[in-house]
Design a protein around this nucleic acid. Sequence first.
DNA 1: CAAAACAATGCAACTTAGTCGCAAAGGAAA
DNA 2: TTTCCTTTGCGACTAAGTTGCATTGTTTTG
Lengths: 123, 123
Amino acid sequence: MHDHIKALFVKHKIKHTHARLAIVEVLKEAKAPLNYEQIKAKMNLAMDKATFYRNIAMFEASGMIHKFESDDRKWYFELSSTTHAHFICDACHQIKCIEINMDTIEGDVKSIVLKGTCKECKA
Amino acid sequence: MHDHIKALFVKHKIKHTHARLAIVEVLKEAKAPLNYEQIKAKMNLAMDKATFYRNIAMFEASGMIHKFESDDRKWYFELSSTTHAHFICDACHQIKCIEINMDTIEGDVKSIVLKGTCKECKA
DNA sequence: CAAAACAATGCAACTTAGTCGCAAAGGAAA
DNA sequence: TTTCCTTTGCGACTAAGTTGCATTGTTTTG
């Protein structure tokens, strides 16, 4: 069950603690980027927010996760392995995963965030 | 000189005050999205930050400008008329304007932000 | 095993971009 | 001028995220 997660820790040279496992378990199951509140609600273990953010910072420094800010002044996190473009709808506030053609983009892209009104809300 | 700016105010049904003119003048000349600090430094008129943000909120509600958050927990603003995709480099922290093929994207896109390492920093 | 050395955690205090309430100032209408 | 509405400045406030520090947990070493 945790094999994939343990492999992630090994790959990024991060020691696995209960707190770190709990965070990554949630991120692994997530269908879209999540913020602190959302992750906290889904974790099977309570931890201080300082612990959470310190571990998140470590994950990010190692390249294991990516983060971005939505328009609500909150950080959203996701595993790097599932990185793709996101569409944040200013009407329904949902974060949706989308496909984008990035063939023409120069540089090393780590995250893409589009904002606007989604198909459903626009209709 | 201010004809274009005045037209913008008329178009979006916003009364023009000294404060509003000063903000939009800076945005009109900007080559990339700017945050409060940057706009404040370029304005020819001092104003309270509450005034600034209230006017910005009004501009945004009218569709005159767009805003997004970078990774520095600050809002960046630009005129809607000059909206295009931006690349925020995690190494040099510059915001660069880029072209993107959005033909396949459904919905009404208002802003696109890519993050990663730019061509120059990657090299 | 014991003890030193280091890493992870919890708690509370702190930081700071942005927001809000309210009173004063400005400006249009009558 | 008086009334009414809008805009502004000031200061207090908010809240996500950060930091310092003491405590606990976990390796390393003698």
